[in-house]
Simulated assay, not measured.
Amino acid sequence: MSSLGIARNMYRYLLNAEASILGVKRAKELDSSLRFGRKLELSDPKTLADKICWIELNTDQTLAARCTDKWAVRGYVAGKGLANLLVPAYGPWGRAEDIDVDSLPQAFALKATHGCEMNYLVPDKRALDVDDMLDHAHKWLSEDYPRACVEPHYKLVPHRVYAEDFIGGMNEIIDYKFHCLNGEPRFVLTCSERDKGLKLNLYDLDWNPIDGLQGPMKNDKQIARPKLLSEMIDAAKCLSADFDFVRVDLYESDGRIMFGELTFSPACGVMEYYSDGFIARWGRELRVHGLE
């Protein structure tokens, strides 16, 4: 294991220890300060980050966990009448050895249902190292999502893997992330150039660039307005209706919209790539049941 991997495992261990000894609230505040340089006020939440994290730690997360589960959410999306947005999928499997590689399409992506950064892209199955892919699947299935102690809804998601049709490489797909407050899409974060380290842009719903990003991921180039923006907004509104806050991730490709995922605590809920002023502004807009 690399020195970076060892350091990450040590931090994970310490974070879990903090959560068990000091409580999840205190561990969350410490993690935010140490790792992201952002102070959370969970006893008196005001900003968007404060309120997202407060929701995570103080409300029933049963539905959020179901919709975080990248397989189970497909049923939720279909139940909203949006099955046409779903990318064809295969599985799920609770054991890596149960994956029927021969039955999978020529190009696919293997994913875990219970965490982020658990994706294995296979643009051409003829070049696939099956053992390497299965090693990744074993690793995902055997461990909890590393930050589950401070994002506890992940603990409710069963450990499984599944496959989806391959929709594009890291440098080909733009991810449109609709941030929805009280069932209404309010602004869009785009993610692009993942093969170069990830670049971010921020837009209102009329596709005007807006201020609010900070840090090295801020993109100097603009992203073209998606052709199906209006339809994307409608889909995001439909999928966010049951939640005080959720981020609805969508793609546009070959004249159609595709569903990505629902996210309830983006970037641990801290969202360090947003400026203090930006999260303060949207914190005033978010109404949280149980707080007001």
Results as ranks from 00 to 15, higher is better:
residue 1 M to Q: 05
residue 1 M to R: 09
residue 1 M to K: 07
residue 2 S to M: 08
residue 3 S to K: 13
residue 17 A to N: 06
residue 18 E to Q: 12
residue 21 I to V: 15
residue 23 G to W: 09
residue 28 K to M: 14
residue 32 S to M: 11
residue 45 P to S: 04
residue 48 L to K: 08
residue 51 K to L: 10
residue 56 E to N: 14
residue 57 L to I: 10
residue 63 L to V: 08
residue 65 A to R: 10
residue 71 W to M: 09
residue 72 A to T: 13
residue 75 G to D: 14
residue 76 Y to H: 08
residue 76 Y to K: 03
residue 79 G to A: 11
residue 80 K to Y: 06
residue 81 G to L: 07
residue 88 P to N: 08
residue 92 P to G: 03
residue 94 G to L: 07
residue 96 A to H: 10
residue 104 L to W: 07
residue 106 Q to K: 13
residue 116 C to V: 09
residue 120 Y to Q: 05
residue 122 V to I: 10
residue 127 A to Q: 13
residue 127 A to T: 12
residue 128 L to S: 07
residue 130 V to G: 04
residue 130 V to R: 13
residue 134 L to V: 07
residue 134 L to A: 07
residue 135 D to S: 15
residue 137 A to W: 07
residue 137 A to L: 11
residue 140 W to S: 04
residue 141 L to W: 06
residue 147 R to Q: 12
residue 152 P to L: 09
residue 152 P to Y: 05
residue 159 H to N: 11
residue 160 R to H: 12
residue 164 E to V: 06
residue 166 F to M: 01
residue 170 M to E: 14
residue 172 E to W: 01
residue 172 E to A: 10
residue 174 I to G: 00
residue 178 F to Q: 00
residue 181 L to H: 02
residue 186 R to Y: 05
residue 188 V to C: 06
residue 190 T to F: 05
residue 192 S to L: 11
residue 196 K to N: 10
residue 199 K to Y: 09
residue 201 N to Y: 01
residue 207 W to H: 02
residue 211 D to H: 06
residue 214 Q to I: 14
residue 216 P to S: 08
residue 216 P to R: 06
residue 218 K to A: 14
residue 219 N to V: 03
residue 223 I to Q: 09
residue 223 I to F: 02
residue 225 R to K: 15
residue 226 P to M: 03
residue 231 E to G: 00
residue 235 A to C: 15
residue 235 A to P: 01
residue 235 A to S: 13
residue 240 S to P: 08
residue 241 A to M: 11
residue 241 A to L: 12
residue 242 D to S: 13
residue 244 D to C: 08
residue 244 D to W: 05
residue 248 V to G: 00
residue 249 D to Y: 02
residue 255 G to N: 01
residue 256 R to C: 03
residue 257 I to Q: 04
residue 260 G to S: 05
residue 260 G to E: 01
residue 263 T to N: 01
residue 263 T to Q: 02
residue 264 F to K: 00
residue 266 P to Y: 02
residue 266 P to N: 07
residue 268 C to H: 12
residue 271 M to F: 03
residue 272 E to Y: 09
residue 274 Y to W: 11
residue 280 A to R: 13
residue 280 A to F: 01
residue 282 W to C: 06
residue 284 R to W: 00
residue 286 L to R: 03
residue 286 L to F: 06
residue 287 R to F: 11
residue 288 V to C: 10
residue 291 L to F: 11
